[in-house]
Design a binder for these strands. Structure first.
Length: 552
RNA sequence: GCGCUCGUAGCUCAGUUGGAUAGAGCAGUGGUCUUCUAAACCACCGGUCGCAGGUUCGAAUCCUGCCGGGCGCACCA
């Protein structure tokens, strides 16, 4: 019995009451009845508040409606008992055998257990990081590297067709400043005040100068361009490599320049013009974003004929839509939150529905603590802690897990000293340890010649076994919820909860025979439960891009 | 000034979208290993959910107003 099955049973009970004329439901029967796993043991294996929610609609006191449902439910197969509690909650206990089959279905699902087709048919574009290729990726990018990647994995698991995209901001003044900074450093001159000042700039300049002595012969303006282009190439390669090592991969690397070079910017603006919100004034080309509540109209082409950054963004959005994506999800840093509304308004100007076709998530600031001291990170000031440096300190698993553990919209403090500790105050080790323990039991079982296979689900009747089975049964809906809400941290929290449930089971229930003890059906049933738990932890960790070690 | 966002235990944070007595981890105190990984488990300690109103059977969650932190408001990128 999974929560989904129970939810369906409750809905059927409700329909039966309506069909029998016992209840008059004003509207339709709600398609989904929410079933919860209660915190308190006294509240049963599962509970639901349908009676409370429908009482008004039905015109009966909640407890009375609950009692009617309880009578109906008690007869359903797999339901051991039902009671009405509090203001009108229904607390359900599930028969051990009905609960025990969950282990078998997890094993049958294997790697696919937890996946679903909840978002099937959706073509989602997921754009994240999109850094300037002017330096290493820093911690803010790192948060989205972990979280964005996990969102992608969770969306895929929920059945969506996801394209992960990195937009390369390789055009405009920042690039020129980057080139000028490199050139100046190579020539031994001070870097311009508004340029890039990190140590990496000097190292990069030195490396380029020594690999390309011919650059020194170029005229000044060409020399700056040469340094800019070579620096760009190297930084982009560097970023890709860092991300790959961090297990974050993109399907599409889209460059801002290419949007201009193959006239997609022109095309995009043309499309926006057709949509009717583009106009000329004061020698510039504008988009009338105020039509949709923006506080001022936005310039697309400046008086001097240059496209604005907003023009590229608009064209890029149009391009994504023409490639068939909806929604287009943008994962942005907190310093871009002023941009959220502008993107939504842009979608509206393109004739789209901002609530359906575009979605912007903001990642709040990451503060990093080291030795109790806060490090402020700024590329331009040169105090950088790059993705690679942090990974070197923490390892990929610990960092990915830590960053995936919190919702993006809450500010996050990462204490390097805590994340690097391989101790129990680091949740990733807690979950991984559970997986290693499970693997160990399975190894020992194999040594004893006990195979995971047929077993009697009814034997999984211990309190701890029930808890664990209910936890395992939850994975699919946790994944769906994480996908729908774009909140992979729910998977992490679920894994911690499930690992804890397993550890408690392990403490109370001996899985393998001791000494010369004979192998019983209880051993076999528990072994199946252990194998199923391992699958669930491994699948969940995979969705966060974290490894599931067999030994620790 | 306008706008966005956050405020929950000593610390770091959850809170199933309005449900039952607000939960974890860490820190603190005290227990549990002769056999499957003690990187574990159990118990105790810890709260005016920033403040004040409102909405209703019911609010940490929704609405309003304050207080406090962070951030953004370009023909910059």
């Amino acid at each position: 019995m999974t929560p989904e099955e129970l939810s369906r049973i409750v809905a059927e009970a409700l329909s039966a009451l309506v069909d029998d004329g016992v209840l008059a439901l004003g509207g339709a029967v709600p398609p989904e009845v929410r079933v919860e796993r209660p915190k308190l043991r006294e509240h049963g294996d599962y509970s639901t508040n349908v009676a409370l929610q429908l009482a008004k609609q039905v015109g009966r006191p909640p407890r009375e409606l609950a009692a009617l449902l309880a009578a109906q439910l008690a007869a359903a197969p797999g339901v051991a008992s039902v009671e009405v509690a509090g203001p009108g909650f229904l607390n359900v206990r599930v028969a051990a055998a009905a609960q025990g089959v969950v282990a078998g279905s997890v094993l049958a699902g294997g790697d696919a257990y937890g996946s679903s087709d909840a978002l099937a048919g959706q073509r989602i574009n997921l754009e994240f990081i999109s850094a300037n290729p002017t330096g290493p990726l820093h911690l803010g990018h790192t948060r989205w590297a972990a979280l964005g990647d996990a969102i992608g994995r969770v969306l895929s698991a929920a059945g969506a067709d996801v394209t992960r995209e990195f937009y390369i901001n390789d055009r405009g003044a920042q690039m020129d400043k980057f080139g000028a900074s490199l050139e100046a450093s190579a020539a031994g001159r001070p870097v311009p005040e508004d340029g890039y000042h990190g140590d990496y700039v000097h190292e990069l300049a030195r490396a380029i100068a020594s690999d390309h002595p011919e650059f020194a012969e170029l005229p000044a303006d060409e020399r700056v361009v040469a340094f800019r282009e070579e620096g760009y190439r190297r930084q982009l390669t560097e970023q890709r490599q860092q991300l790959e090592e961090f297990r974050t991969v993109f399907d599409v690397w889209s460059s801002e320049r290419s949007l201009h070079d193959d006239d997609r910017v022109k095309h995009g603006i043309e499309r926006l013009r057709e949509a009717g919100h583009v106009f000329e004034a004061e020698g510039a080309l504008w988009m009338r974003t105020t039509d949709f509540g923006d506080d001022r109209d936005r310039v697309l082409v400046r008086t001097n004929g240059e496209y604005t950054y907003f023009a590229s963004d608009s064209a890029y959005y149009v391009d994504k839509r023409e490639r068939g994506f909806s929604p287009c999800i943008y994962l942005l840093g907190a310093d871009h939150h002023g941009y959220v509304n502008r993107l939504r308004v842009l979608a509206a100007c393109a004739g789209d529905d901002p609530d359906r076709d575009i979605e912007v998530l903001i990642g709040q600031l990451v503060t990093i603590l080291r030795g109790g001291e806060e490090l402020r990170l700024s590329k331009r000031a040169g105090t950088i802690l790059s993705l690679r440096e942090v990974v070197d300190l923490t390892g990929v698993d610990a960092l990915r897990y830590t960053l995936c553990r919190y919702p993006a919209d809450s500010p996050l403090t990462v204490d390097i000293d805590v994340v690097t500790r391989t101790a129990s105050d680091n949740p990733v080790y807690y979950v991984q340890y559970a997986h290693a323990r499970l693997s160990s039991i399975l190894r020992n079982a194999a040594d004893l010649g006990i195979a995971v296979g047929d077993h009697d689900p009814g034997l999984l009747s211990h309190e701890r076994e029930g808890e664990l089975l209910r936890a395992l049964a939850d994975l699919p809906r946790v994944v769906q919820q994480a996908a729908t809400l774009r909140e992979p941290h729910r998977v992490a929290r679920y894994l911690e909860d499930t690992a804890a449930t397993f550890h408690r089971f392990y403490d109370d229930c001996r899985v393998l025979p001791m000494g010369d003890e004979e192998v019983t059906d209880v051993h076999r049933a528990r072994l199946a439960l252990v194998a199923a738990t391992r699958v669930v932890l491994a699948n969940g960790l995979r969705m966060l891009g974290v490894t599931a070690p067999e030994r620790m």
